[in-house]
């Protein structure tokens, strides 16, 4: 159980949020030209990081807006949150 700080609403219990997976994945610009290998890479081959991960969250039971978080998956500690389009603090 952990607290997530929505960049719009402030600190809330994580149960108000929905997880949206790895952040900063860019959908292929020319999907028709992708090989099966490249599709598999984009769709299925996850980083599944143990450590600091950049990920998307949706404040689904709050303001319903999407944002990003940098969370350590080995201890669930959230290091920073930032809005869509912004860059994470290093």
């Amino acid at each position: 159980m952990f607290i997530i700080k929505c960049p719009y609403c402030g600190e809330r219990d994580h149960s108000e949020f929905n997880y949206g997976g790895e952040a900063h994945l860019v959908r292929p610009k020319q999907p028709t030209e992708l090989s099966d290998d490249q599709w598999a890479e984009y769709l299925f081959m996850k980083k599944n990081i143990k450590g600091l991960q950049y990920e998307r969250w949706n404040h689904s039971h709050g303001c319903r807006r999407w944002f990003n978080a940098a969370r350590d998956t080995s201890n669930d500690k959230i290091h920073s949150v930032y809005k869509i389009g912004e860059k994470p603090n290093k």
Binding site: M45, K46, N48, I49
Partner: peptide, 18 residues
């Protein structure tokens, strides 16, 4: 659960989420 971590050691990626 740590399969992806080990795959990473060998330079591979797996279609897994832990």
């Amino acid at each position: 659960g740590h399969s992806s971590v080990i795959a990473n050691m060998a330079g591979l990626r797996l279609p897994l989420e832990s």
